[in-house]
Design a protein around this nucleic acid. Structure first.
Lengths: 340, 340
DNA sequence: TTGAAAGCGCTAACAA
DNA sequence: TTGTTAGCGCTTTCAA
């Protein structure tokens, strides 16, 4: 990479010389400290603009130990987490809250296994003041690094615990997946539906998917396995799962899809198969992402989560973390539209 | 934010003391320099692991002027650029190429106007060695900053030039939007279609959309305006545009949609209106994103671009930029499937 | 209200 | 092959 011509970049020393004050005074002006004479402030600012001076963050970090940046780390972009409007919305909440605190959100993705090492180095190297992590489960190198360095961290989604895993000291924020699923399926039963299928997320990988399936089973403990089809939280996956369910159980009269994106795929297949929604098959989604739920045909009855709010919350926890109860479950509620 | 307990973090000095060598030797081990005795290397590594030492990047940057990170800056996430598989694919290419060079890609988004200042400070502050920028047009604060600091930068997409704008010194990579559109529309005419509509991108904002429309007009200079409908590169926008076109020109017999995402929306509307594809209406898209084009009903004839390759190319230009011809137009080709 | 001086943790000559 | 030393550019006491 072309090396930046840093020899030519003005330093605080240059600004000091040009404006006839000391480095300390320039530093005070830059950092907006009050005890500087107004005319001095003005002159220093003028020189800064004239020289095009920009503070060297590395030098500043070295002494302040602060960067003004927060990393958002997301695993599994190949699963198209990236393309999910849910994630988009969450991220917007995070960015806005961080921006309100004057911090810059920087997004890092983990594609390959080897990325873990590089990202761990990045986080450990002090490039950021904290991290928000998605789809990461305990036991990995990133967790080690974060734990060892005491880097403030908040997890998006309750960690999927395996035997012996712990999450001590790790805050997390998650929606009430199980409760929400119960609301959804409960609604379908209250409508008198008898054969309620479900399209699940990848419940062996994602805790949220496991919880939503558990909520379904809470309400329908005796549901036969052939009413349950696993998908992957994508629209396409939802469509394929719906097709499989219709094939296996043409008599089904309702579907709980564990995400709006999957529900929209399911609706497309139902239409293609000539099933009327909700008359023949009632459909309930999960997430209540406006851009999907309000524009499907028919509009989607779904479990609402304040996704942007969850994002904001995660960012806020990073700044003022209550010392003893760092993890939060955000409640859900059912939003009735036309599909069920 | 909780301040990191940095007082407790071991420094290179601690490692040196514990392993009975000098700081320089430790530094050499860390940086993999060859001239260190094997046993010393081993001992130093042991101490590093034992102490949990991680190099302080700020200190390192201060002297090397390198960060090992490259920023990818994307504007207009509210336009759902973020959700476009095209962008996802491009990004993957960038990340992989950067990773191959040992660099970490960090993504920054511009939501609000005030974000520009913060991001400019971030880039200017030396947090990164270079930047790849999307949907950014000359004249903004970011351009100023990049130009002034000489930060290596590559633009994704040919900059949309307005009067007096220049892009001197800014490399860019773009697909052959105009040529690709000509291939698409030319194919439709060669099929004998007489009333070929087009669903455009936001051609007042995006150069790529303007070019694709220009390509359409190259082939059909006399096309009436009511065959042209502007959308926004989203699936939903494509669907709405298709509905408007059918309403206005029920006699249309072909559509060139300026993105696969819009084409997929258009196909859905055509199906809902009972038009057979391609018999009644032939449809051609743009991008050839496998996950869309291969799974629509029917599969989509579309203009192929090597999107991941374009991403890799952008990253590569950052490292070894040919001095005089930094900008690249990547060719396209038509891929025939069932929709036209 | 301002300046002088020390030092953050690291790399990179230069010497040994 | 290793150690010594001098900064990198900034903030921050402490004195003035």
């Amino acid at each position: 990479m072309t090396r930046r011509p840093h020899g030519q970049r003005p330093t605080i020393e240059d600004v000091a010389r040009s404006s006839g004050v000391s480095r300390s005074t320039v530093s005070r002006v830059i950092n907006g400290e009050p005890k500087v004479r107004a005319e001095v402030v003005e002159e220093v600012r003028r020189v800064i603009a004239e020289l095009g001076y920009v503070p060297n963050q590395a030098a500043r970090q070295l002494v302040t130990h602060r960067t003004g940046a927060v990393a958002v780390v997301a695993d599994q972009p190949d699963n198209r987490l990236f393309l999910d409007p849910y994630f988009d919305c969450l991220l917007r909440g995070i960015r806005r809250e961080l921006a309100a605190h004057g911090a810059q959100a920087v997004l890092l993705f983990l594609d390959d296994p080897e990325d873990h090492a590089r990202v761990a180095d990045y986080l450990g190297g002090g490039h950021v003041d904290g991290a928000i992590l998605f789809s990461l489960h305990p036991g990995g190198r990133l967790h080690d690094m974060i734990g060892r360095l005491g880097l403030p961290a908040v997890f998006g989604g309750r960690p999927l615990l395996r035997d012996g895993d712990t999450v001590r000291g790790h805050a997390w924020v998650d929606g009430d997946n199980r409760g929400g699923a119960r609301q959804a399926v409960g609604h379908l039963t209250s409508l008198g539906r008898q054969r309620i299928a479900t399209i699940t997320g990848p419940h062996d990988q994602e805790q949220s998917a496991a919880e939503r399936l558990a909520g379904y089973r809470d309400v329908l403990p005796d549901a036969p396995d052939d009413l349950i089809e696993r998908a992957d939280y994508t629209r396409r996956g939802g469509a394929d799962a719906m097709a499989a369910l219709l094939d296996r159980r043409p008599d089904l009269d309702a579907v709980f899809a564990a995400s709006d994106l999957m529900a929209s795929g399911a609706l497309e297949i139902l239409e293609r198969h000539g099933r009327r929604v909700p008359e023949d098959v009632a459909v309930v989604g999960f997430d209540d992402l406006a851009e999907i739920a309000e524009s499907t045909q028919p509009p989607l009855t779904t479990v609402h989560q304040d996704v942007e709010g969850m994002g904001r919350l995660m960012a806020r926890l990073l700044f003022d973390r209550p010392s003893d109860l760092p993890s939060v479950v955000v409640p859900t509620r059912l939003v009735l539209r036309a599909s069920a």
